[in-house]
Simulated assay, not measured.
Amino acid sequence: MPSGVHIHNVRGRLFAAAECVLLRDGPDALTSRAVTEEANCSKGVLHRHFTDFDAFLTELILDRVRGIEDRATVLRAAAGTGSVVDNLTEALQDLFGPVTVAIVALITFRDGLRARLRQAGLAGIPLVGQASSAIAAYLATERELGRLADDTDVDTLAPALVGAAHLLFADRASAPPQTAAVRRTVTSVVVGALPLRA
């Protein structure tokens, strides 16, 4: 695309292009050239909006973190409805879509990006950490409603669920796990926290 042509929603277009490259070719193929070629724009467009490529990737991840925060609100609103296992199964399948799995791999792959994310206030592995917080908030609400045992340690249970789910979804070369497999994992992790039924 010639320079000087106005592009609508540049950030969104570049973020979508980065996700396409990540999903198709993996984190080692993600470069500013690959992103701008996928977005059909010049490299200068990316550098006019972001100081460097790690700044671009940081903003991409921050944008996805905001998406998880939105999903957390929906999940917490589901407390008290349906079954705890079904709500968690659906949430984990939503949280660990292909883009999230690819971004987690990217964060692991790039040292400079992890440093930038720490500077932006995101410790640990972003997206995974936010998913754990979302699940913990949901579990705490379910505990308050009496749908989990009073002594449920939600701050331990949430990362256990997220870690187990991440292992199920982490193989980028295979199809995502089926709902039954995710549900079985969730049930195994939370069974001790569910009140005994008469």
Rank of each mutant, 00 (worst) to 15 (best):
A134T: 05
R172D: 02
G163W: 14
A105R: 12
V182Y: 10
G121Y: 14
V182F: 05
G163A: 13
V128W: 04
S174Q: 13
D171M: 06
P98W: 00
G124F: 01
L106I: 11
L95V: 10
H166E: 06
A115Y: 12
R118P: 08
A123D: 06
V186I: 14
T152R: 03
V154D: 02
E142D: 09
V104E: 05
A158E: 00
L148A: 04
V154W: 02
G97W: 06
G146C: 14
Q93I: 12
D171H: 03
A115S: 14
D111M: 09
E142S: 02
A134H: 02
V101S: 07
T185I: 08
V101M: 06
G163V: 09
P126R: 13
A115W: 12
A136L: 01
D153N: 10
R118G: 05
V162S: 02
T179H: 15
L148S: 03
L161M: 07
L117T: 04
A105W: 12
A136D: 04
L95D: 03
F109V: 08
L113G: 07
T156I: 12
L145M: 06
L95Y: 10
Y138R: 04
T108P: 12
G129T: 10
Q178K: 05
V104H: 02
G146D: 04
A136M: 00
V182T: 09
G146T: 07
V104N: 05
T179S: 14
A131W: 09
A123P: 09
E90M: 10
A115C: 15
V128I: 09
A165F: 06
G129N: 01
L157G: 11
T185M: 05
A137M: 05
F109L: 01
D153F: 08
L92A: 00
Y138V: 08
A140P: 04
G97I: 00
A91W: 02
E144G: 15
F109T: 13
Y138P: 03
S174F: 13
T179M: 15
L117R: 06
A123K: 13
V162G: 01
A170Y: 15
G124C: 01
A165G: 07
L95T: 09
A173R: 12
D150E: 14
Q93R: 07
A115L: 15
L127G: 00
T185A: 05
D150A: 08
G163P: 07
V128F: 04
P176Q: 08
E144W: 11
A131H: 02
A134Q: 00
A181E: 14
D155T: 15
D94G: 05
E142M: 09
I125Y: 01
A175N: 13
L113C: 08
L92K: 04
D94L: 12
A120T: 13
A115D: 15
G112S: 11
D150T: 10
A181V: 15
R147I: 11
G129Y: 12
